[in-house]
């Protein structure tokens, strides 16, 4: 079709780009707020910082209504199954922001109970570092995610299907492996 036949106010684009543009500007976050970062998430949504300016203020606490999970705060071993279940309940397309040092890597809590980064167990799209990150930084993260969606998104989410590897580091670091082996050996010797 020649360009001259196109009337005013009609734009030519690919369906993928149009869908991604629409999606990126109406993110509905699901705040999985467990600890300190949750308070900064509240601060981001409230009066001074006003997340609504970026189209991501519709916090919905039901995972069925959301497409952006913000994991704010440390996730411990008792909570991780809950996190995974909520992630599975969210409809496609969905994204995940890991907010704060504890959610990204475990942060200062290198202890027996804290999962050392949620990306080991659920896929993460974007990391916002800081302990806790300032609201400006969380907004920068959300804008970066919007950019990512705009530039890489497809209508039926084929880009997600390609990510068959876990996002995080290999599940165990070396000393963790050694400890597990020792514990297993001890168990075997007891039995």
């Amino acid at each position: 079709m020649a360009m001259k036949d196109v009337p005013d106010n009609i734009f030519m684009t690919s369906l993928d780009a149009a869908a991604s543009w629409a999606r990126s500007n109406s993110l509905w976050p699901m705040p999985f707020a467990t600890a300190c970062c949750g308070i900064e998430l509240m601060a981001t949504a409230s009066s001074r910082f006003d997340l609504a300016r970026f189209g991501a203020e519709v916090m919905r606490f039901s995972p069925r209504q959301c497409d952006l999970m913000i994991v704010a705060g440390r996730v411990v071993m008792k909570m991780l199954p809950v996190l995974q279940r909520i992630w599975l309940q969210m409809p496609e397309p969905k994204w995940c922001i890991s907010m704060g040092a504890c959610a990204c890597t475990g942060g200062v809590f290198d202890t027996y109970a804290v999962v050392q980064g949620v990306d080991r167990f659920i896929p993460v799209d974007l990391y916002v570092p800081g302990c806790p990150p300032r609201p400006e930084q969380l907004m920068a993260g959300i804008i970066a995610l919007q950019d990512k969606i705009k530039h890489g998104g497809t209508l039926n989410g084929t880009e997600f299907g390609k990510r068959t590897q876990p996002t995080g580091p290999t599940p165990y670091d070396l000393d963790e492996l050694i400890r597990i082996r020792e514990a297993n050996e001890k168990l075997i010797s007891i039995n």
């Binding site: 467990t34 202890t111 027996y112 109970a113």
Partner: peptide, 30 residues
């Protein structure tokens, strides 16, 4: 309860009196 049990007190045994202040911060975070 216990969905946020992250071993503060165990950590307190491994950090000195000045360092542990960074951990107690995160206790009542409001």
């Amino acid at each position: 309860i216990g969905y946020l049990h992250s071993g503060f007190e165990k950590l307190g045994e491994h950090l000195d009196f000045n360092q542990y202040v960074t951990i107690v911060d995160r206790m009542n975070y409001i």
